[in-house]
Design a protein around this nucleic acid. Sequence first.
DNA 1: ACGATAATGATTTTATTTTGCAACTTCCTG
DNA 2: CAGGAAGTTGCAAAATAAAATCATTATCGT
Lengths: 163, 163
Amino acid sequence: MESRIERIKKQLHSASYKLTPQREATVRVLLEHEEDHLSAEDVYLLVKEKAPEIGLATVYRTLELLNELKVVDKINFGDGVSRYDLRQEGAAHFHHHLVCIECGAVDEIQEDLLEDVEKVVERDWKFQVKDHRLTFHGICWRCQDKTDTEDAKQDSLEKQHVE
Amino acid sequence: MESRIERIKKQLHSASYKLTPQREATVRVLLEHEEDHLSAEDVYLLVKEKAPEIGLATVYRTLELLNELKVVDKINFGDGVSRYDLRQEGAAHFHHHLVCIECGAVDEIQEDLLEDVEKVVERDWKFQVKDHRLTFHGICWRCQDKTDTEDAKQDSLEKQHVE
DNA sequence: ACGATAATGATTTTATTTTGCAACTTCCTG
DNA sequence: CAGGAAGTTGCAAAATAAAATCATTATCGT
């Protein structure tokens, strides 16, 4: 993790930006919540725990900066807020998401999956693909299990009290 | 087109909503700009031409309603505005988009392309896919042509004035 | 340590979207 | 075809997110 921060620091420097304490604190929060999909406000509140003097504007600026450097990706799941997601180190493409319409959970898929599709797009639409955003909406395995269990429960109830 | 409005009217009725003149005007604007990706404000201004007395809030409410009914999809290309895109009639899935990072043009892909990928997701992640969002970011054929032309121009200039 | 340059935090501003509410429509019922 | 409940509208105000402003402060190479 330290080495990861070091590398981000180098990225900043090579674009002649500085790794200030505020920026470092922000990056640390992102690293500690790699699985989550935090909004700017979320990040702000978490960073504030470590560095209470930080301002919201700085968090916005830092996130925008990290987005420029392709360290994070700015995503939008349809609620009005932008969320920020660390990009896998060295990944050329952004990873995919599974959004559960039951419980709202967001899972990640790191595999590419789109190689063939991109080839088709490049060939048939003459579109030179640089990046992509892919999100599936549906029902996650947890909610499928839950529903199964409830169905089973429901079934047994219906057996007891036939209406 | 009239029949399409008729069908949307039925959809509204079956959810016990009404097709008011304002809603009809809004739907007509959407149909007439099927290729575009209008923001709420865009729609508002266009509807106002036909029905000047309409309020912005009504447009927002209508778009939200049509989104609920899956007549339109609400999309977000990363600028701060939501855009509304008519769904192909009968399409189970939302179509895909090609966003050009040079000129900002947004093209649509109606083909599915994701059948295989969805199978993998359902199998390997036990995720029951209901819908998807796929957007490619890259360079459209128009800008590729443009760049080619400019390169050629540049080449010939360089031949004339070698530095 | 110094000084140019970059970054910060508090606050204000902008832009988009949502909400509250009184007035107005719509459409069903008799 | 009048009456009335339910649904809808337009306006204005409020809520939200994000960006911009600006005086102050920190950073880093020399």
